[in-house]
């Protein structure tokens, strides 16, 4: 667990015979090496809407993916999908993302529903906001496919904190909306996976561009945002 977040730790992506062709392709497609300057790497921003935050009990309700190529958000190639949960959705979670049990009644179950997302993530470094949530849910879902979620998973929340330390504009923004606003960026539909993913994608290119001014950023250096931010706390 202590190596999580470091991209140069070689761990097999293929765990066993993968469940689908798509999963196999994911496992065989490499992502940008750690020393790749961020503008030359391809990213996939992922946002999940969930029935709760506990990965052992709760489920993925909807997902969205937004690609970033060469520092640009490819707005026409985004992905959005719904997954049918195994249990009815608790009222508390419906209040957050607005997706009701009836809305997902016709959706495919997770293992099938997630295939397009796995395809979209192949060959791309994952970016998410408060990434431990996406990491834990995706890890479980991927393991069911016989594959391991590739590291690193970059976190815009950590990058936002790092920039706040670098710029000495504290305290760091507390939410995705605050972070986007602090960067003068638009906020898309909140608590909608696609809206949040798009906001996160824009936040990511802005943060990486700003951080580039302090030192040239690579995939690895961005992955180490938390570690770098901790240095400031001493």
């Amino acid at each position: 667990m202590r190596f999580r977040g470091l991209c140069d730790v070689k761990r097999p992506v293929l765990l066993r015979s993968p469940a689908t062709e798509i999963a196999l392709r994911y496992a065989r497609t490499p992502v940008a090496a750690g020393q790749t300057p961020w503008r030359l790497a391809n990213f996939c921003v992922v946002d999940l809407e969930l029935s709760g935050l506990d990965a052992r009990r709760d489920e993925i309700v909807s997902y969205a993916a937004v690609p970033i190529d060469f520092g640009r958000v490819i707005a026409g190639d985004t992905l959005y999908g719904l997954c049918q949960p195994t249990r009815p959705l608790a009222e508390r979670s419906v209040l957050v993302h607005g997706i009701r049990t009836v809305d997902v009644a016709d959706a495919l179950p997770l293992d099938e529903a997630i295939q397009p997302l796995i395809a979209a993530m192949a060959g791309r470094v994952v970016v998410a906001h408060v990434a431990w949530v996406e990491r834990s849910f995706l890890s479980r879902a991927f393991r069911r496919q016989g594959i391991r979620l590739r590291e690193p998973v970059l976190d815009t929340n950590s990058l936002g904190r790092l920039l706040a330390f670098e710029r000495e504009t504290l305290p760091p923004p507390r939410s995705l909306t605050e972070l986007a606003q602090s960067l003068n960026l638009p906020v898309h539909r909140q608590h909608n996976a696609l809206g949040d993913a798009l906001t996160t994608a824009q936040v990511f290119i802005a943060l990486a561009t700003h951080l580039d001014k302090f030192s040239l950023e690579t995939v690895r250096s961005l992955a180490r945002a938390d570690e770098r931010a901790r240095l400031y706390k001493v």
Binding site: D69, V73, A75
Partner: peptide, 11 residues
Amino acid sequence: LGSAVEIEFHP
């Protein structure tokens, strides 16, 4: 047009 949009950030 929207489907061809690429979003850029310029500091």
